[in-house]
């Protein structure tokens, strides 16, 4: 059950843009579809949703080919917008109607989301106040309305393409909170983003695409584990450069006596710590961890783009 993408394939002329993409979500959670610009993420999403014809493969939802009739999908496209000159309420009611939500239910849901996203003043203006048009809103507030459009049908499968791009920190936290709530409700989420920290925060499984091909796939925790603990964040009271050099660890970045190091493994890190203590260097921070998703991503797809 759940979502299964089998050998999704697309080419334009001779150019293959999605090359046999496969992944599955057996249970609710968040799946990340990552890749550089032009790697084939958006094309894959469009094929999954039936907007683009597939040249091969299939998308299965609960054992049936996924269609808009058998799966309630919420989609926040990367290229998103609103009708600039139409009232916000008209637009939301229209999109709700297209998704088969009754008028009464749509009004309730709009009120709920407006409250939640802090958009009540735009959607329910006080009497004698002209309703706001989309182009009178800031980008962040427009994004709130677009988010409402994606969630208005209470979808079971939610696809978010760059959901947090262009948001200020306050709105980012607001959106993150809502994403967490949707996860808690047992929804299936597919997220595509270039903000690796965000992906890392939510996703359990990932696929990294590079120039149409899958270059890395699996459970994020397992992937990171396979790399071992090689990132060492070290902060000392005194200069420790010579000891680091002796240990064989590589300095990635350095700011005064705060170092970001790459070590071969725990043994090398422990040896360095022992040497620093022996030398009477006061250690403030010693944080040995697995590589971040950002580092894994850059390692996997960075060569071509360097």
């Amino acid at each position: 059950m759940g979502l299964e993408v089998r050998n999704l394939y697309k080419k334009y002329g001779e150019k293959v843009v999605v090359d046999n993409l496969c992944f599955e979500m057996k249970k609710p959670g968040v799946y990340a579809l990552l890749g550089t610009n032009g790697a084939g993420k958006t094309t894959s999403i469009r094929m999954m949703l039936g907007m683009l014809a597939k040249d091969g493969g299939e998308v299965i939802w609960n054992g049936q080919p996924l269609t808009m009739d058998n799966c309630n999908v919420g989609y926040l496209a990367e290229e998103r917008g609103l009708y600039p000159k139409y009232s916000l309420m008209d637009q939301l009611m229209y999109f709700a109607g297209l998704r088969g939500v009754s008028k009464e239910e749509a009004k309730k849901r709009i009120a709920y989301w407006a409250e939640k996203l802090g958009a009540t003043e735009y959607l329910f203006p006080e009497k004698k106040t002209k309703p706001k048009l989309a182009d009178e809103l800031s980008k962040g507030n427009q994004q709130k309305i677009q988010f409402m459009v994606a969630l208005i049908s209470d979808p079971e499968l939610i696809i978010l393409d760059e959901p947090l791009s262009g948001l200020d920190p306050v709105n980012t936290d607001l959106f993150k909170g809502i994403i967490r709530e949707e996860i808690a409700k047992g929804k299936y989420l597919i997220m595509s983003s270039h903000q690796m920290a965000t992906v890392e925060e939510f996703c359990t499984d990932i696929t990294i695409l590079d120039r149409s091909k899958t270059v890395l796939q699996g459970h994020l925790g397992e992937i990171k584990k396979s790399y071992g603990r090689v990132n060492l964040k070290l902060k000392t009271e005194q200069d420790a450069q010579s000891y680091i050099g002796e240990s064989g660890a590589r300095i990635i970045t350095m700011k005064e006596t705060e170092y970001q190091l790459r070590v071969d493994g725990e043994e090398q890190a422990n040896a360095l710590l022992g040497r620093l203590i022996d030398a009477g260097i006061q250690v403030v921070t010693f944080d040995l961890r697995e590589p971040s998703l950002h580092e894994i991503f850059v390692e996997k797809v960075g060569d071509y783009h360097e």
């Binding site: 949703l49 919420g74 989609y75 496209a77 998103r80 609103l82 600039p84 297209l98 994606a150």
Partner: peptide
């Protein structure tokens, strides 16, 4: 063109 330039098309094509 308004719908295309406003980048609404993909949102619409989920339903229609």
């Amino acid at each position: 063109v308004e719908e295309k330039s406003s980048k609404l098309v993909e949102t619409l094509m989920i339903s229609i």
